[in-house]
Simulated scan of single mutants.
Amino acid sequence: MEMRSMDDDKVFKALGDPTRRKLLDRLCEENGQTLGQLCMNLDMARQSATQHLGILEAANLVSTVKRGREKRHFINPVPLHDIYERWVRKFETHRLTLLHDLKNELEGEWK
């Protein structure tokens, strides 16, 4: 398997879990958080968060910097951009917008 496919697999695996997506959302809101800050209001043990962050780091979606006793976590958007370039951009924005609008309109009729 080529390196790019392996990297994409790691990114998709990391993004496939709602808890990991929530951690990325939290880092988007405030980059550079400690483990304790990320665990606040998540109802998650530090050990669980550490495991999820490890998967995000393996996918290169999160990087860490040690500052004294603290370890700060930072989102890395480059792998997401790579996925976008490979899987989304090749479709015309106009077509995607029309499909998105149609989907929303049809779903609205069923509610």
Rank of each mutant, 00 (worst) to 15 (best):
T19P: 03
L23H: 09
R67L: 10
P79A: 04
G54S: 12
E30H: 09
R21F: 07
V78W: 01
G68V: 02
A49H: 15
K103G: 02
D8V: 08
R4H: 09
R95E: 01
L24H: 06
T34C: 04
S5R: 13
L42P: 08
N60S: 11
L96F: 02
W110V: 14
F91Y: 14
T50Y: 14
D25G: 14
G68Y: 00
L38C: 02
L80H: 04
A58P: 09
S5K: 07
R21T: 10
M1Q: 07
L56A: 02
L56N: 01
Q51W: 11
K71V: 11
N76A: 06
I83S: 00
V62Y: 05
T97K: 09
N41A: 06
S5Y: 05
M3R: 07
R46Y: 15
G68E: 04
R95P: 00
C28W: 15
L53V: 06
P79E: 01
H81V: 03
L35Q: 07
D17H: 10
G16V: 08
D17I: 07
G68P: 01
S63C: 09
I55R: 05
E105A: 04
Q33I: 12
N60P: 03
L102M: 13
E105D: 09
L56D: 03
V62G: 01
D43R: 15
K103P: 01
V11A: 06
D43T: 15
L53Q: 05
I83W: 03
L61M: 06
Q33L: 14
